[in-house]
Design a protein around this nucleic acid. Structure first.
Lengths: 228, 228
DNA sequence: GTCTATAGTGGGATAGAC
DNA sequence: GTCTATCCCACTATAGAC
């Protein structure tokens, strides 16, 4: 269950108002886009005053959180289907990444806005912030499943780091996707389809003696950074 | 020479005014932060009218772009010192990345705000935007020098792609740096010191027959993506 | 082409009464 | 929790000086 650190409203009435605002926002965002939708219009559409809208969402950007939580939830669901079906590592990785693209597709425009928010280090919405620790852990756990349920043989030192590295890979894919203006984000699909088998090959290669040295360096660096 | 696609001012007087505005903005941004610095205050500080400030910079964001251009300029200068001294690839890479950290250090806190605005795909500040094409090419050219002036032997197919990949690496380092709250951004230093020799080892490894397959896949993928 | 002065508008965000 | 009234500021418009 993904709750994105929005405080749970106390009374049923509050919940209802909150819902009305979120729904109105989603509707208007979809129709007219984020920038051209004003907080005043959202409040009107929801049948509340402007001030009241701000009582529930302390900024326009906070409304985007609603989308984010939705996507995370749906991604976990879609990914679990893939993970139940596939055992080959490359297929599992490709499937989970693709699932993200499927789920997030309708929200591509808002992803940009969300990124804008997330990019600020001090923001609680940042994927690296303490407030995001829960959702982040969930995503990493997803990639732990990708590895553990698979046929992948990989250098032992790397195996424990892999889920977090794959999560980072997803962040990279998402970044690419956010900037992908091709129709249907076709280019990101190409990226995922190409990257998954490549990561598979690379990962298996880590057991070769020549390559293992670099892997040890990498793992060592990760540990140092985590400590520091 | 870094011209950030801002139209080059024709007269010396114009250049002077432009400079005054940028300088004032940088000063105020550093003192009070981006959000709390108004365009009026910038215009006042620069001794020009508000309208004149907008004559030179069509939005507040465009001012940041000018700042970014300054950092790029200084980076190019600092990097050229390193490139004149070192021939070993790892040292050149580490030096150029470190030079960026040196140059950008005074602005680290401000960089968060910058990133917030740059992260949005539609923003002209985005490193992938058409407006940033010039600076982007210059940065990539810097990494072309890193490769070409070095002792690096690398799979031929990869050699041409390497500058752009190294530029991407820098983007990653910058991202890490923006989030790095350790004093003096010590952790990012550690990252750079660790990553440079690792990239060196990896790059040399690409000539091994086992590894070359993956490299070809990578290069193929890059070409596909670029075409698409 | 460079610059000033002034007077807007729109919309995000807030204060404080109820 | 909800409102109304208001603030603030990015940005625009205009008209005119040199």
């Amino acid at each position: 269950m993904t709750t994105v650190s929005e405080p749970a409203p106390r009374t049923p009435k509050a919940e209802q108002t909150r819902r009305a605002i979120v729904d109105a926002a989603m509707r208007l965002f979809r129709e007219g886009g984020y920038d051209r939708t004003t907080m005043r219009a959202i409040a009107d559409e929801a049948g509340v005053s402007l001030g009241n809208a701000y009582y529930y969402f302390s900024s326009k950007e906070h409304l985007i959180q609603a989308y984010y939580g939705l996507v995370l939830e749906q991604h976990a669901a879609a990914a679990s289907v893939v993970l139940a079906e596939e055992t080959a590592f490359a297929a599992r990785l490709r499937g989970v990444l693709s699932a993200w693209l499927d789920v997030a597709a309708p929200y591509q425009e808002f992803a940009g806005k969300f990124f804008k928010n997330a990019a600020e280090p001090s923001s609680p919405l940042s994927p690296f912030s303490p407030e995001s620790a829960g959702p982040r852990e969930e995503s990493i756990a997803l990639y732990r499943q990708v590895v553990e349920g698979s046929d992948l043989k990989v250098a032992k030192a790397l195996r424990e780091e892999l889920p977090e590295l794959l999560w980072l890979l997803q962040m990279g894919v998402v970044l690419f996707w956010v900037y992908d203006a091709s129709e249907g984000q076709r280019r990101t699909r190409t990226l995922v389809d190409g990257v998954a088998p490549m990561v598979d090959r690379l990962a298996r290669m880590t057991r070769l003696p020549v390559v293992r040295g670099v892997v040890d360096d990498l793992v060592g660096l990760l540990h140092t950074l985590r400590a520091g």
